[in-house]
Amino acid sequence: MLGSELSLLFKRRRTKVLMALLFLAPWLMGFVIFQFGGGRGGNGPSFVDLVTHNAVFLVLASVSSLMPLLLPLAVSLVAADSIAGEASLGTLRYLLVAPVSRMRILVGKLLVSLSFVVLICLGVAASALVAGMVFFPTGRVVLLSGQTTSFLHGIALAFVATVLIAMSLVSVAGIGLAISTFTDIPVGATLGTLGIIIFSEILSNISQVRGIWPMLPTNYWLSYADIFRFPIRLGAIGKDFVSQAVWLAFAFTLASARFISKDVTS
């Protein structure tokens, strides 16, 4: 089931284009920084400024600049399409009468979205590491705290950070799946999911609603940066894990409650 779902996803031209764009982004970024410098003192995330010092930081600069919009967009496109897309094509009814049980479809679709999340995050990171090694030095890695560590340890930290970013996107996959069960229009589901994420990012910048910040799915999205501090701070990362797990549990139970009792009329 998972194999068939994955091949369905990757046979789509849209998926291929999306992944190509994501994997090209670090090269573009690396080239621009290589040509024009890090632009130190700008408003960009600090990793961008550090890129010229070490290849490893291109990994973090890439994922951190794709994090607020493009990665959630890619995940929403896939996750929100999962049920709504099948419904709009009408293939959902044929899957159900094949017969495939509704829970099986839901779990299969969730696993595909989660695999996609891991795949694009690792893909962007790997692409960025290669681009970084082409453009920038590969010596000891300076941590945010000013201390240094070996290049290999730096790569290991970047890998952990990438996994943490993938973990942060789990809520997007879950929310996308849930919304996907409420509509037969995939574009609507994608926009709805992206809307929730952007809304959450906006709320997390309004200090008057500080009280609800811990409930926002995006609240701990920058916690992966704590891997690059010394000592490593696990507090926010742990909270992100709990937050993502709760959002996933909520979204998945909502999706199954809706999908199991849904009249499929598409």
Partner: peptide, 8 residues
């Protein structure tokens, strides 16, 4: 069925 998500 919706008791699940509501509880969470």
């Amino acid at each position: 069925l919706f008791a699940g998500p509501i509880t969470i």
